[in-house]
């Protein structure tokens, strides 16, 4: 039947080949290579190195810098997840009202999401250093007149604010999509029964939003834990190493501090952390969806 005389099974097999070959060569191979180097003390350029077993893994757990990086990354994730999702939810509720100009506002709000994080990060770095302080002084607002990024205690906020500015838009449109699923007749029935707007929001809108909320949390958590571009663009890990995220530490150790083996071991920890977290979250999400049917 087939012109070239190949069996359907063979054709199907050949159709998977480009993906399978590329995936083995450029994805699985690096994963295994990474694990191999995590067992060595290779510095990244010498010709020789030793196998050190799990020494890197043990050292990392006692490494203050790594633990600081871990706690920075976790705190950052919490701030960004809360910040992004609350801004997103408020704007989504506003944009779900029958307003004439809502299309225009949605377009404006979404624009930062299509920009590159490195450009936005560099831009806000300039704002924080040379623009906001004079503006704050003129207006007499104290927190604005200080450079958030220049202080180890507040630098995390400067980065998080930038991330929220750029990152709330995608959760916002996901919430909008969720809000459009709330059945109108249920709300109308609630209005007739005399439910107040607040009651309607908590007993009707929120339950319908739960699946979208889960999606948004999964995405925002992953985004927070893997923050890298903003760090490079805005603080480069400083001041006094207070903003070194996990991704940034891996890069620093592997690419510029000649601790390649050590960096790959850190990467394995990050992989376990993020892999396990997203796996749990996605399992939870799947259960919710089944429960809904």
């Amino acid at each position: 039947m087939n012109i070239r005389g190949l069996k359907p099974g063979t054709v199907f097999f050949m159709m998977t080949l480009p993906a399978v070959l590329l995936y083995c060569l450029f994805f699985l191979a690096p994963v295994f290579i990474g694990f191999y180097y995590s067992l060595t003390n290779w510095d990244g350029f010498s010709l020789s190195y030793d196998m050190v077993g799990f020494q890197n893994y043990i050292d990392i757990l006692q490494d203050k810098r790594f633990l600081n990086g871990l706690s920075f990354t976790l705190l950052y994730t919490v701030i960004v997840v809360f910040g992004k999702l609350s801004v997103a939810l408020v704007l989504a509720l506003l944009l779900s009202r029958p307003l004439k100009l809502r299309g225009l506002f949605r377009s404006i709000y979404f624009f930062p999401a299509v920009l590159s994080m490195i450009t936005v990060g560099l831009m806000f770095n300039q704002f924080f250093y040379s623009l906001f302080p004079p503006i704050g002084e003129k207006l007499g607002i104290e927190w604005l007149s200080l450079n958030l990024l220049g202080n180890p205690d507040t630098a995390i906020l400067g980065i998080a604010l930038t991330n929220i500015w750029q990152g709330f838009a995608i959760p916002m449109v996901i919430f909008i999509a969720g809000l459009s699923n709330v059945p109108k007749d249920i709300i109308e029935a609630a209005v007739i029964d005399g439910a107040s707007p607040v009651q309607r929001f908590f007993s009707i809108t929120i339950p319908y939003l739960i699946p979208m909320l889960t999606v948004n949390v999964v995405l925002a958590v992953k985004g927070g834990l893997t923050v890298f571009d903003y760090i490079v663009a805005m603080t480069n890990g400083g001041p006094s190493k207070s903003t070194e995220s996990m991704g940034f530490l891996i890069y620093q150790h592997g690419m510029s501090e000649m601790k390649f083996g050590y960096g790959t071991a850190e990467a394995i920890y990050v992989f376990i952390l993020i892999g396990v977290l997203s796996f749990i979250q996605i399992k939870l999400l799947a259960r919710k969806e089944v429960g809904q049917q």
């Binding site: 998977t16 993906a19 399978v20 995936y23 450029f26 994805f27 699985l28 191979a29 690096p30 994963v31 290579i33 990474g34 180097y37 992953k222 834990l225 893997t226 890298f228 996990m246 991704g247 891996i250 890069y251 592997g254 690419m255 390649f260 960096g263 790959t264 990467a267 394995i268 990050v270 992989f271 993020i274 892999g275 997203s278 796996f279």
Partner: peptide, 24 residues
């Protein structure tokens, strides 16, 4: 198997393979 193994890539953050990619 191809499906399962490729899908598992979703759980691997880029930073976990950043250094080995450079080397490889």
């Amino acid at each position: 198997w191809v499906y399962t193994i490729i899908l598992m890539g979703i759980f691997v953050p880029f930073q976990a393979i950043m250094l080995p990619i450079y080397r490889h």
